[in-house]
Computed example of a mutant assay.
Amino acid sequence: MNLISFKKNKLTRVSKEDRIFDIFNILLIVIISLLVIYPLYFIVIASISDPNLIYSGKVWFFPKEITFEGYERIFRDSKIWIGYKNSIIYTVIGTIVNVALTLMAAYALSRKDLYGRNALMFVLMFTMFFSGGLIPTYLVVKDLGLLNTMWAMILPKAVAVWNVIVAKSFFENTIPNELLEAAKIEGCSNTKFFMKIVLPLSKPIVAVMVLFYAVGNWNSYFDALIYLNNENLYPLQLILRNILIQNEAATQMVRDVGSLAAQQRISELIKYGVIIIASVPLLVVYPFVQKYFVKGVMIGGVKG
């Protein structure tokens, strides 16, 4: 028994090179994590700290002279709430349209009995590398009567080809043909098979698609900048852009402040606060789909 234990210990002993490699990896992960987490943490503490102390370099790890005046003014501003409402509408409806079209297209292309599926895949992949450009796309949206409507934020980007490829690979590697044959024997149609069997077995890829599209729709502002002129249709991200770049906060949310110095101080609080408010929804939703995220990406990326 002693000899066997000695051999097991010898086999499981970690070499010096392995320890150095593990230590290096841990340090690298810690450094990268700090580089990602600290800027987010700094924005949080800066949104409730005195801007004068931030400019003087006295705020690093903890907030100082805590104030919630920026958040109070943000929540009192009607444009922020309109932007929040519009972003939620665009994200929810847009994600439903995106995921539905992507999954249907991906499943159809994953079927080996689909006539001309290679030609269809070529046409889809061609659009990944070549497009008409901004001006032709704008003219198409204009001719369709979508300018200054909600659908201008949804229909032009209804399907992402890369997501179709990922979902197609998932279906090919997860849904066996034998399952379809057995369902057909029982009298199941293609539509019923997709709705009743394929989708319940595809929760990981559905969660991945929802996350990908929801993040893209929530963060989208360029389409609104091009296609929308009505401020009542602006998403939150476009309002955030105007606050950060055009400094509209100094003229809209701080009109009741007398001195210019006080206006600039409150404007900085508002800028940091709006960033936090715009990021909270995604941070809240992500933990609920995280368990499916890695699995779906790994399975969907096996074959392209």
Rank of each mutant, 00 (worst) to 15 (best):
K291F: 11
V254A: 03
N229I: 05
L233H: 02
E17Q: 13
L3K: 15
M128H: 06
W162K: 09
I226K: 05
S47N: 08
N217P: 05
P51W: 08
N219Y: 02
N148G: 10
K142C: 09
L101T: 14
M1I: 15
D22N: 13
I29T: 12
P287S: 07
D143L: 10
L240R: 04
T174D: 04
T91D: 01
G116M: 08
L179Y: 01
R255E: 13
Y227S: 08
F68H: 11
L155G: 02
V164S: 06
I276T: 06
A249G: 12
G83W: 00
L228F: 00
L199Q: 15
L147V: 08
M150P: 00
E186F: 02
I243Y: 06
D256H: 09
N25G: 11
V14T: 14
A152F: 07
R19A: 07
K64Q: 15
A250K: 13
V289D: 09
S131R: 15
L34D: 07
R73G: 05
V161A: 00
D22M: 14
K58H: 15
N219R: 04
I32R: 05
S15F: 07
S220E: 09
V99K: 06
K8A: 14
S220R: 00
C188S: 15
V280Q: 08
R265L: 08
L35C: 13
V164Q: 08
K112T: 13
N230K: 10
G57E: 02
A105S: 11
R241Q: 11
N177F: 14
N25Y: 11
F62L: 15
A224R: 06
E178S: 15
L109I: 00
L228E: 01
A46F: 03
S5T: 15
K8G: 04
D256F: 10
L35Q: 07
E65I: 15
V257K: 04
I299K: 00
F288Q: 07
L124P: 01
D18M: 14
I243Q: 04
P200A: 12
V30R: 09
N86D: 06
G300Y: 01
L146P: 03
M195L: 15
V44M: 13
Q263W: 05
A262C: 04
A250Y: 13
A183G: 10
V206A: 12
W151C: 09
G300P: 03
K142Y: 08
V161L: 03
G300Q: 03
S49A: 04
W60V: 14
I270A: 01
N242V: 03
W60S: 11
N177K: 15
G70F: 02
I175K: 07
N173Q: 05
S169P: 05
I48Q: 00
K79P: 07
R73D: 09
L147Y: 01
A158Q: 04
M209N: 14
P63G: 05
A108D: 06
E248F: 10
F61P: 01
F212S: 01
